[in-house]
Simulated scan of single mutants.
Amino acid sequence: MAKIIIAFASMSGNTEEIADLLKESMGPFNHQIDMMEIEHMEVEDLLPYDGILIGSYTWGDGDLPYETEDFYEDLLTLDLTGKRAAVFGSGDRAYPKFCAAVDLFEDRLKECNADIIQNGLKVEFTPDTPAEIDRCVDFVVSFASQIEV
């Protein structure tokens, strides 16, 4: 049984809804799945996990949310070699940099030597259509199937 963490930041609840859907969709894999809000974490909390999913909404014109900035900076202190990771997030297409926080976190995880095993999942607002829900489920099923102990 692998250990997977879903670390997320959510202001309006959209990213938390995605995180909940991802956790629920991993049920058949029998992995141990923990969910934590980034603002209540230290980066070292990631170390015991085999799989890391980070979720964040994007603020304004492509910025990280305030509550993730310290976590994002502190990630540089970690060596995540051997950890499998992926990033998800919510955003608003009205802004020029749609879901830019996903790209920022993905790049930062690469800098920490994490193995990015899925392209980032970007969702406008919340997954509220069958197609969007399926896209989220496909994302996490592919992720969970690639996590081994």
Rank of each mutant, 00 (worst) to 15 (best):
F88E: 06
F88M: 08
V87A: 12
A85I: 02
F105Y: 00
Y95W: 01
G82C: 10
E73Y: 09
A86L: 13
D70A: 14
R93P: 03
V102G: 03
S90N: 07
A86K: 10
F71Y: 07
G91C: 12
Y95F: 10
T81Y: 15
K83C: 05
D92R: 01
F98V: 06
A85M: 00
G89S: 03
Y72M: 05
K83Q: 04
Y95M: 07
D92I: 06
L80W: 01
A86V: 11
S90D: 04
L104C: 03
E106Y: 09
F71M: 09
K97A: 07
F88P: 04
F98M: 08
E73F: 08
A100M: 05
V102H: 05
E73M: 13
S90R: 10
Y95S: 10
F88A: 10
A94K: 05
A85K: 03
E69Q: 12
F88V: 11
L75M: 15
L76C: 14
A100P: 06
A94M: 13
T77L: 15
A100F: 12
G82M: 09
D92M: 12
A101T: 12
K97D: 13
G82H: 10
L76T: 13
G89N: 00
C99E: 09
R93D: 00
P96L: 05
D79Y: 03
L76I: 15
R108W: 05
R84S: 13
R84A: 12
R108T: 02
G91K: 00
P96W: 03
E73T: 14
C99T: 06
A100C: 03
V87C: 14
D70V: 10
K97V: 09
T81Q: 15
F71W: 03
D92S: 12
G91Q: 01
F88C: 12
T81F: 08
T81W: 06
L75G: 07
D79T: 08
G91W: 04
R93E: 07
E106C: 01
D74M: 09
F88I: 02
A85N: 06
F98W: 08
A86Y: 05
R93K: 07
C99G: 05
R93H: 06
